[in-house]
Simulated assay, not measured.
Amino acid sequence: MGAWGNRNFDNDTAADHLSMITGRLLKEITEAMSGDPEEIEPDEYWGVAVPCNVELLYRLAELSYVGVMLPTPEVATGWKRQYLAVWDETIDELVSSAEHRAARRAVLVETFDRLIDAARRETE
């Protein structure tokens, strides 16, 4: 086992483990985004879980651990566009407060943008 430090993620086995975890997150997002758009509506499981997985990915990437798997910036940008299109189309039926809609949408935009930024840094 190769090690480059004393922290929990400073060795080859930990990097492999992190790769498996982030790979699973990517797979879940990919499958949700390639399925029926109804499944990513804001009141559906994947409508909630996709942004959670996106945030987990970018937060792990921000820690600069070896083994974090990210989508390409283009894929992440496509996910953002697709997710927000579904969200925009369906949210009015679910939330009456314009303030809540605007605040939640801003969080979603930031979440995807941070993943896109992390993916860009990864490709540099």
Rank of each mutant, 00 (worst) to 15 (best):
D16G: 07
L84Y: 01
T123W: 09
S34P: 15
E124Q: 13
A118G: 12
S34Q: 06
E74R: 14
T111K: 00
V75D: 09
G47R: 00
A15M: 02
G35D: 08
E89T: 05
D16S: 15
V95S: 13
A15S: 06
D16I: 03
D117T: 13
A106S: 14
A3F: 02
A103L: 09
V75M: 13
S34T: 12
E28G: 10
L25R: 00
A85F: 08
H17C: 07
L108E: 02
G35L: 06
I21G: 04
L115G: 02
Y58F: 13
I29R: 02
N11H: 14
M1E: 10
D88S: 07
S96E: 13
L108V: 13
R121K: 12
R81L: 12
T22R: 00
G35I: 06
G2P: 15
A32W: 03
H100G: 03
A118H: 06
A106I: 05
G67R: 02
A15Y: 06
G35R: 00
H100A: 08
G5P: 09
D10I: 09
R105N: 07
D12I: 04
I91G: 05
M1A: 07
W79V: 07
L63C: 14
Y45L: 04
K27R: 15
E122T: 10
A76Q: 00
R105E: 08
A49K: 13
D36C: 12
S96P: 00
R104I: 07
M69G: 08
E44M: 15
T90C: 14
P73R: 12
I21K: 05
S34N: 14
G5C: 10
V54M: 03
A49G: 10
V68S: 00
V50I: 13
D10V: 10
E62P: 05
N11G: 04
L63F: 11
L57A: 01
P73I: 08
R104G: 02
E89N: 12
V48R: 06
V95R: 05
V109K: 05
A106C: 01
R104C: 06
A98I: 04
W4E: 05
A98N: 14
V86Y: 08
M1R: 07
P37G: 03
T90D: 09
L56Q: 07
E41W: 03
D117I: 13
G35W: 07
L57M: 12
A15G: 08
L60W: 00
A103Y: 06
V107T: 13
D10N: 12
T72S: 15
E124M: 13
E39D: 13
R81K: 10
L94R: 15
A32S: 12
I91C: 08
S19L: 08
Y45G: 02
L57D: 00
N6E: 03
F9P: 00
F112L: 10
T90F: 04
I40R: 00
V109Q: 03
R24I: 09
D36A: 10
P71E: 06
R121E: 14
E89Q: 09
G23S: 12
P37Q: 03
D10F: 10
K80M: 11
M33E: 05
K80S: 02
P51H: 12
T90V: 01
G2M: 01
L18H: 03
G2I: 11
E44K: 11
Y45F: 15
N11A: 08
E62W: 08
